[in-house]
Amino acid sequence: MELEVTEAPLLSVRNLVKSYAAGKNGYAVLDDVSFDVFPGETVGIVGESGCGKSTLARAIMRLGDVTSGSVELAGKDLTALRGRQLRRHRRHFQLVFQDPFGSLDARMSVRAIVEQPLEVHGIGTAVERRELATDMLARLGLGAEFLTRSPKTLSGGQRQRVAIARALVLDPQLAVLDEPISALDVSVQAQVLNLLREEQRRTGVTYLFIVHDLSAAEYFCDRILVLYLGRIVETAPAAELFANPRHPYTVALFSAAPDPRRPDRKRILLEGEPQARRPERGCVFAARCPLGKDREICRTTSPELAQAGSPEHQTACHFPGELQESRALATVVPAGEENAR
């Protein structure tokens, strides 16, 4: 995945494999996942349940061991770190959880929650820590009146902002955002996204954004990886990916997402559901693919990621773009009317 940049990647994931059990019954949740994230970038990881996106987040966060492969952060292999070394290094990569209710200790005040990571990593004096936490919270719209409150008394959006403050107060190089907005109401989601982006402008933090909401991914991310059953099936800059998806799964996924602006676009309906068992050979998507279902090569040979379109656009498909092109030719039937047969 070579980019036309001289800069070294901040995060470099190489041949990451995570499998459960072994032998005949074993199955891989992540299968040979490799990608780079450059400093200051926001990379989105998009996919449905069972695609392995949360496993990937956990693997990068070193919250679980991987079967093989490496995760390098600023040149340091995280998978090789152990014990105290790992704990000390954690200030450079932080996680924001999906659930703003379960991830905060209700017995602590908002300020104490944000001060705690500074304390753990021995940053500054008590006075400095207090100042850092207070400033961080203020930037996220939580002023003095919130500092002494318990997370119990906060709304979902406010709690999520506390969780973000706790992660970003350490000034990490990388923040992994695991579905940070999916539990929130629409009007609050927008605020959280705005604040995350402001922080990025200020500090240059790099985001890895795990998300299932496609429009949020398009709006928020520079680059997107599409995951299906543990494999990256497509990756491209966000705008290009949405304008010109090449992998049949990406095409179908985009077509299925409801869009209040284009209620009459035609959906591609896939058979079956995403939480399938991985096939033993061939393309992971073949069984549900409108193209590959009956094609020999898709059933037997697993396609590798290859350039499709611009140099930054890659897809793992034997017939990239075919579905998208055939769709463009087809007459667009409004979604509501196609059923009145």
């Binding site: 629409v186 009007s187 989601q189 927008a190 605020q191 996204l193 909401d213 496609l214 429009s215 949020a216 398009e218 709006y219 928020f220 966000a238 705008a239 949405f242 869009d259 209040p260 602006r261």
Partner: peptide, 10 residues
């Protein structure tokens, strides 16, 4: 207005 609609300017 708060929706991150597809195609919205980043």
């Amino acid at each position: 207005a708060s929706l991150a609609l597809p195609g919205r300017s980043r």
